[in-house]
């Protein structure tokens, strides 16, 4: 006889519960297994490149790190310029949709921006190389002539317009939809009480946004930027089509010799690669994997640290 007073009451385990809980556990662990599989593949295939002797690597590089360093720089550099362009625009668009535009217009605008997200990157690449690069080249010449004393705009202007700045503009357009969508959602979640309190104290709409909306949304803006950065870092085809790459490290925005990105370099060199060349490209993929991992980790930390001050709790 069991004593009914002690011990927890055991619920009958039903088949449906079992199936559902185990399938979620399966799905959850599958993602870890996949990630581990990709990481193991990258590491195993990278070893021959990292241990390769001078003379066997592409670009006559003495060792793998010399080979990959300009690519790391180019990847971060192009993505960073893209973010500098995209962050203010996406915040502006999101604020317009959430706080300024009439209701009907804001809905329509939201759809249009989501539509941008559905455009495949090869189309952005084609647009970048056939329309933007040609159209913007005269402006680059003007920038170089008038603002050439700023080191960023120095050097010899590219004749084709296929520069890192063109690439950054294309990347900025590509990351805008995701960043705008996240920012818009966050802005809409601002407690109405905060906004009304600010307005009641005599704040103009801009002041209300500054004191109530933006502080509340800061972690959201950071995570939106990091999502955008993640996409910009890994973007391959558009960069491969638009950029005029060279094996260099420089900060010039308008010249024909631009540092390449890791992803675009893999896409460009893989078809003709053989032997250690393939391992080298895979190893550079591993480096990109690590960079994106670090970016995501930084985003996490930033969001967690700001949470306490945002008023979100």
């Amino acid at each position: 006889m069991a004593t009914p007073t002690t011990g927890a009451i055991k619920a009958r385990v039903r088949l449906g519960d079992r199936v559902f809980s185990s399938s979620t556990v399966f799905a959850g662990s599958l993602i870890l297994v996949l990630l581990a599989a990709v990481a193991i593949f990258l590491i195993v295939q990278s070893i021959p490149a990292i241990t390769a002797k001078a003379g066997t690597l592409p670009n006559a590089a003495p060792n793998f790190w010399v080979y990959v360093w300009p690519l790391v720089f180019g990847t971060v550099w192009a993505a960073a310029i893209a973010l500098v362009i995209a962050i203010p625009i996406s915040i502006g668009v999101a604020l317009f949709i959430s706080h300024y535009a009439p209701r009907k217009l804001s809905q329509g605008l939201g759809y249009v921006i989501d539509l941008l997200a559905a455009v495949p990157s090869v189309v952005f690449g084609l647009w970048g190389v056939l329309v933007l690069a040609k159209g913007i080249q005269p402006f680059f010449v003007w920038l170089n002539e008038n603002l050439g004393w700023i080191p960023l705009f120095g050097g010899v202007v590219s004749g084709t317009g296929k520069t890192v700045l063109t690439v950054a503009i294309v990347l900025a357009v590509m990351v805008l939809p995701i960043m705008t969508a996240v920012c818009r959602e966050i802005f809409l979640q601002t407690p109405v009480l905060h906004e009304e309190a600010a307005l009641a104290l005599g704040a103009t709409r801009w002041e209300m946004i500054r004191v109530a909306v933006l502080p509340f949304a800061r972690p959201g803006i950071i995570s939106a930027s990091m999502l955008g950065l993640g996409r910009a870092l890994g973007e391959t085809l558009a960069v491969a089509m638009v950029l005029s790459p060279a094996i260099v490290i420089n900060f010039f925005l308008l010249t024909a010799q631009n540092p390449n990105t890791i992803a675009a370099n893999i896409a460009l060199q893989f078809p003709e690669a053989s032997g250690v060349g393939i391992n080298t490209l895979i190893a550079s993929g591993l480096v990109l994997f690590v960079i994106t991992f670090i970016v995501n980790a930084i985003a996490r930390i930033a969001v967690n640290r700001r949470k306490a001050f945002s008023g979100a709790n």
Partner: peptide, 18 residues
């Protein structure tokens, strides 16, 4: 490290035309 680079035969042809 000289000049512009473009992807593939068609990319080079297009860059020269442009």
């Amino acid at each position: 490290a000289v000049g512009d680079a473009a992807k593939g035969t068609s990319g080079v042809a297009d860059a020269v035309k442009g």
